[in-house]
């Protein structure tokens, strides 16, 4: 199973095994990682699952689609070029080792 590491705003790191095909959001929420709120449960409707993808993985993860792009504009924390909604990133073997920083405000 691919691993994903979450870095909280206070610096705490949590590494989890993700089920193939599960989103980065789902993996965090199910295990109770704090800071990823995900009010809409992954429907791309709340922008409360905002993360910053660490540089090494930006290409592998890719960019947002139009809908996500607009949602990100409305996110609470500052939008950066590496911003993504974690419910829209699906885990797979290529993303093994992925590291994301959780946006401080959701």
């Amino acid at each position: 199973m691919p691993h994903v590491t979450y870095i909280s705003p206070d610096g705490t790191e949590t590494t989890l095994d993700a089920r193939d095909g599960d989103s980065v959001m789902e993996t965090a929420v199910k295990n109770g990682v704090k800071g990823i709120v995900a009010e809409c449960g992954g429907a791309c409707s709340c922008a409360t699952c905002h993360v910053y993808v660490e540089d090494a993985f930006v290409d592998a993860v890719g960019g947002p689609n139009d809908l996500e792009d607009d949602m990100l504009d409305g996110a609470e924390s500052e939008r950066l070029p590496v911003s993504r909604l974690s419910c829209q990133i699906k885990m797979n073997a290529q993303l093994d080792g992925l590291r994301v920083r959780i946006a401080p405000k959701q």
Binding site: R19, D22, E26, V29, K30, N31, G32
Partner: peptide, 15 residues
């Protein structure tokens, strides 16, 4: 079905 769950067993145990 598994994707529908809000939290896993680990979460409920831990908390």
């Amino acid at each position: 079905e598994e994707s529908l769950e809000f939290r896993n067993d680990h979460f409920y145990r831990e908390n």
